[in-house]
């Protein structure tokens, strides 16, 4: 009884493992570099002394951050971005969380149409969503006499972002052990107490990540704001119009300012998620 011979690989195991490592680590490193090329380029250019965005630099300075500080349009855009992002975050997270609970926890006849409808904007190109909504608000606006502005921009953001929040919270709901709710009821908890002491605290990491994701998706959104905000400018649309009319290191400086809350929030969300795991 000798059995079948061992299969012969085309590479010996060690060479194969090394090749796989080189390929995988190499690809990851290259992609990270790729992701950060424009980001670092922007940060670098924000410290340019002169007013042209070309290399070599005339010198390093914080001049454009000062300009940014004094530029009331930029300040206005910053305020609008923040306002839209905070409001959109609250609504998108709330709607997405409830929808996630429905989609994962319950089995009912209309579950598939419901999930499809609630997630649909995820796969819809943003510019087209913006245009479709612009048409809608224009027609409604003519009927009910309103113009597009911050409110319509917020509605557009919520339509687009709530599905993202739903997907993120759904993962948390999926990993949630429903017998814990039964256990709490058995301990004497009312429906409200079950929510307050069990459901919400256990879903919280997912809800929190969803909120941060929502904030940042709205904070950096260009397409929808561009279509729906009327005369109001946010940071992304402000930068876009700036590039269109001729650039200066003011815009890289804006970009750098925008990056800071972003990276902090992403790190915070990751901490929360890992603490819960």
């Amino acid at each position: 009884m000798t059995g079948y011979p061992q299969p012969t690989p085309w590479l010996n195991a060690r060479a194969e493992a090394r090749l796989a490592d080189v390929l995988l680590y190499g690809a990851t490193g290259a992609v990270l570099l790729f992701f950060y090329i424009p980001i670092f380029t922007l940060i670098a250019f924000s410290f340019q002394e002169g007013r042209f965005l070309t290399l070599p630099f005339e010198g390093f300075s914080l001049r454009w951050y000062g300009e940014l500080f004094r530029n009331s349009n930029a300040g206005n855009a910053l305020w609008n971005s923040t306002l839209i992002a905070v409001v959109a975050m609250v609504f998108a997270t709330l709607i997405g969380t409830l929808a996630a609970i429905v989609a994962v926890r319950y089995r009912f006849r209309l579950r598939i149409p419901f999930t499809g409808l609630a997630a649909a904007p995820l796969a819809f190109p943003q510019l087209l969503l913006g245009i479709v909504l612009l048409l809608w608000f224009s027609v409604l606006g003519r009927q009910f006499n309103f113009n597009t502005g911050l409110v319509t921009a917020i509605i557009g953001h919520v339509v687009y972002i709530a599905p993202f929040a739903m997907v993120i919270v759904a993962v948390q709901v999926f990993n949630f052990d429903a017998t814990l709710e039964d256990a709490a009821r058995d301990c004497g908890a009312s429906n409200w107490a079950v929510y307050r002491y069990i459901t919400l605290p256990l879903l919280w990491p997912g809800i929190f990540s969803a909120a941060i994701f929502s904030f940042l998706l709205s904070w950096g959104n260009f397409y929808l704001t561009y279509s729906l905000s009327g005369a109001a400018r946010t940071l992304p649309t402000f930068v876009f119009s700036g590039i269109a009319t001729g650039s200066s290191p003011l815009y890289p400086a804006i970009a750098t300012v925008v990056f800071i809350p972003g990276i902090l929030l992403v790190i915070l969300a990751d901490r929360m998620r890992r603490r819960a795991a």
């Binding site: 950060y36 980001i39 922007l42 890289p252 925008v258 990276i263 992403v266 990751d270």
Partner: peptide, 25 residues
């Protein structure tokens, strides 16, 4: 986790800004 955070941040950063960054590059 560090790689995930880095990718997530790059993903969530405003597309206009990043695209503008590419122009400069």
């Amino acid at each position: 986790n560090h790689v995930k955070v880095l990718i997530t941040f790059a993903f969530l950063t405003d597309a206009t800004l990043k695209t503008f960054g590419w122009v400069l590059f």
